[in-house]
Simulated assay, not measured.
Amino acid sequence: MITLFVEEKRHCFEPDGLLTSPWISSRPTNTAELVRLSSKNRSFDAHIDKSTVILDAESRRGGTVVTTSRTTRLHPRDAIAFLSMPLNIVVENEANDGAFLLWMARALGLASFIDAYRAGWISFRHAGGKGLIPSAARIMSHGVWARRDEKYSRALKCWTLAVLDSDSSYPGDNPNASLVLEAAEYCLSVHQLRSRSIESYIPIDVIRSSLSSAADLDRVKALDRLTEVQKRHYHMKSGFKIGSESPASKANFLASPHHPAQQRALYSSLPDADWTKLANGFGKGLSSVYTDEARRPDPSKKVVSNPEHAAEIRTLLNHIYGCF
């Protein structure tokens, strides 16, 4: 089994600790030699080998975790189950949010991330709603019927991450702050996107290429004229709507008590014509860019032109890749 893990190149073994463990001393003598030889087949990928699993016959079943050192201590009988488990990324919607991360990985030329997903080393866990992300992360470790004594809990914090939208409508707005804090109790890390949503990261050229009518193309031009801060907080799907209703005019929007004053101030400089074009957003189907096989990006081209987006998502994907 050890050699199978090594051949898969997901894990490597530190022989010193393993060879002196109670588990190895209870095995046939040739097992130690097998481990010693297997430990030489290490990965030289700079982004991985960041987490440590220690086999300890005295450890509680289900394991214990030290988050600061990214160390999980396991009873040997739990080792196979834990080491075989994928890194779970908890997201609001697996279909769209998972596709977003894979689409960006391809656009940024991070083929190793996609390979890890296809190999089953990375898995997206569907929370079914943004508010359910902390609950989904908790269930990973504690199950549905959690016990106060944690008798049946499993130390899966180092196997669980979360990614969610910011939903921020103006600079300093942080409506999901409590969700981040709740999820962080059960996750190795929680990444809240800097821009409002995954649709905020669709490159302008990609949006333009998916639309054809003159009116739609005019809307894209208006979107491109926004400042970077305005783009970061603009609701790509709904624009300035409240529910299904859009303000009748920019003047109505600026006087609306249903929009925060900071949001109204942020977009007060928009020309009336641009405001009108952007008032209703681009619709719920916009995220299909990430799921449509025909629109997957060409990694040989510079698809993500926004350097802040590229830097943020590249750092995120490398972090995820380094956690499994």
Rank of each mutant, 00 (worst) to 15 (best):
T3P: 00
L4K: 08
V6G: 03
R10Y: 08
E14S: 02
S21N: 02
P28N: 06
P28T: 04
E33S: 15
L37M: 15
K40T: 12
K40F: 13
S43Q: 09
D45S: 05
D45T: 02
A46I: 12
A46P: 11
H47I: 00
K50N: 14
K50C: 11
K50E: 10
S51G: 04
S51Y: 01
A57K: 11
A57R: 10
R60V: 13
G63A: 12
G63R: 12
G63F: 10
T64R: 10
T64F: 06
V65D: 08
R73N: 09
L74E: 05
D78P: 08
F82W: 15
F82Q: 08
V91D: 09
E94M: 08
A95I: 10
N96D: 07
D97A: 03
A99H: 03
L102T: 07
L108S: 05
A111D: 04
F113H: 05
D115P: 00
Y117D: 04
I122P: 01
H126Y: 05
H126R: 06
A127E: 03
I133V: 15
I133P: 04
P134G: 10
S135I: 11
S135A: 14
A136T: 14
I139P: 09
M140A: 13
M140L: 11
S141Y: 04
H142R: 15
W145N: 14
A146H: 14
R147T: 15
Y152A: 12
R154W: 10
C158L: 15
T160S: 10
A162G: 09
L164K: 04
G172W: 11
G172C: 07
N174V: 12
P175L: 01
N176Y: 15
N176I: 09
V180S: 12
A183M: 07
E185H: 13
C187I: 09
H191T: 15
H191P: 07
H191W: 14
R194N: 14
R196T: 03
R196V: 06
I204E: 11
I207H: 00
R208W: 08
R208Q: 10
S213G: 08
A214L: 06
A215S: 08
R219A: 15
L223A: 05
L223H: 04
D224N: 13
L226I: 03
L226A: 02
V229A: 13
R232Y: 01
H235T: 04
M236A: 08
K237P: 03
K241Q: 15
K250D: 03
F253E: 06
L254G: 07
A255E: 12
S256L: 05
H258G: 00
P260F: 01
Q262W: 00
Q262L: 04
Q263F: 01
S269I: 02
S269M: 00
S269P: 00
P271N: 09
D272Q: 12
A273E: 15
W275H: 07
L278N: 07
G281I: 14
G283I: 15
G283H: 13
S287G: 06
R295S: 06
P297Q: 02
D298G: 02
V303S: 04
V303I: 15
V304K: 06
V304Y: 04
S305G: 02
H309R: 01
T315R: 14
L316D: 05
N318M: 11
I320S: 01
Y321K: 06
G322I: 07
G322T: 05
